Simulated scan of single mutants.
Amino acid sequence: MPVLNYVTSSFVTLTVVIDPIGLVPAFIALTLGLDAAQKRAIGWRASTIACVVLIVTALIGDWFLVQLQIGLSAFQISGGILLFGVAARMILGEHMRQESREAESAAREKVTDLAAFPLAIPLIAGPGAITATLLLASRTGGNYLWLLALILIIAAVSLASALSFELADVIARMLGRTGNIVVARLLGIVLAAFATQYVIDGIKGAFDLAK
């Protein structure tokens, strides 16, 4: 069924791009020294902010592309390339170093609202997640059922991020450094495959328009 395929691919794409479990090390580093209640409040607030950002992106994505006069095929190709770059960093371990730098920067600058920055943006709702959401929204073709499904998927992945933050200490102990690295590599390979498919679809769409 087309709807089921869309739901499955959308859920996998956003889960891989956001990577709730992969956010745990950054969350632990950013909230070091805070008590359990503060960590819980920051985790849920960050996930909520990111959820709102991505839902708004899904709702106005098509309108935004029209206003910029950007064709769907062009966005699929450029978006796929961007997501492939995210996947490459995941496979090579660059995203973990980037999260570490974000944490160190936040500590140096004494960020007062960790939930909004850098947790919600750019760690959860980063360029990769926003691009993926725009691509997935463009695939709905104006079908409100598909768009509703995408919104529910965004909410589900955001909830998974909040729960990962709740269980951050437990997850970190279970996976260990090696486990985090292995998970990141595997998810990176999956994301690379999705990114390649977006580029292929974009090229096909461009050739169809040229005919």
Rank of each mutant, 00 (worst) to 15 (best):
I81R: 03
L72G: 12
K39T: 04
L134E: 00
I60G: 08
W146K: 13
W63T: 10
L145C: 04
L68K: 01
I91P: 06
L59E: 07
I55R: 12
N143P: 04
M96N: 14
I91M: 15
W63D: 11
L32K: 15
G43W: 08
G93L: 09
D35S: 03
L114E: 11
L148S: 08
I121L: 05
L72I: 15
L135T: 00
L123H: 11
P122Y: 06
I81N: 04
M90R: 10
L92P: 00
I91Y: 07
L114I: 14
T133A: 03
L152P: 02
H95Y: 02
T112E: 15
N143E: 14
W63A: 13
L83V: 08
T48G: 07
W44S: 06
M90F: 10
P127T: 08
I130E: 01
I49F: 13
A26P: 02
G141S: 06
W44C: 07
A149I: 03
K110I: 01
G61Q: 07
I154S: 02
P122R: 05
P127E: 05
T31S: 15
W146R: 11
P122K: 02
A41E: 13
L148H: 00
R40N: 09
L114G: 13
G80R: 03
I154L: 13
A50E: 10
I154M: 03
A87E: 07
A37V: 00
A58F: 05
F84M: 10
T31A: 10
F75D: 04
A106I: 09
P25Y: 06
S100N: 14
A29R: 11
A88D: 05
E94G: 14
I121Q: 05
W63Y: 08
E99H: 15
P118I: 03
Q69T: 12
I42Y: 00
L119G: 06
A87T: 04
K39N: 06
R108V: 12
A107M: 11
I49K: 07
L134T: 03
L136T: 09
A107I: 02
A41K: 13
I81S: 06
S73H: 15
I77V: 15
D35K: 06
I130R: 01
A74S: 15
Y144A: 11
G79K: 11
V56Y: 06
V52F: 06
I77M: 15
L92E: 10
P127V: 03
I124Y: 01
I55N: 14
G142H: 09
A36M: 07
I70F: 10
E94V: 14
E99M: 14
V66N: 12
G33W: 13
E104H: 10
F64M: 14
F84Y: 08
A125V: 00
T131Q: 04
A137N: 05
V111E: 12
A26I: 10
G79L: 11
I124F: 05
S138F: 06
H95T: 11
E109G: 01
I42M: 03
V66I: 12
S100V: 05
F75T: 04
A29T: 04
L136Q: 12
F75P: 05
Q67M: 15
Q67H: 13
A103K: 11
Q38A: 15
V86P: 00
Y144V: 12
P25N: 08
I42L: 02
A41N: 10
P122F: 07
E109V: 07
W146Y: 15
G43P: 10
E94S: 11
V53N: 01
G128Q: 04
I42G: 07
L59W: 02
I28S: 09
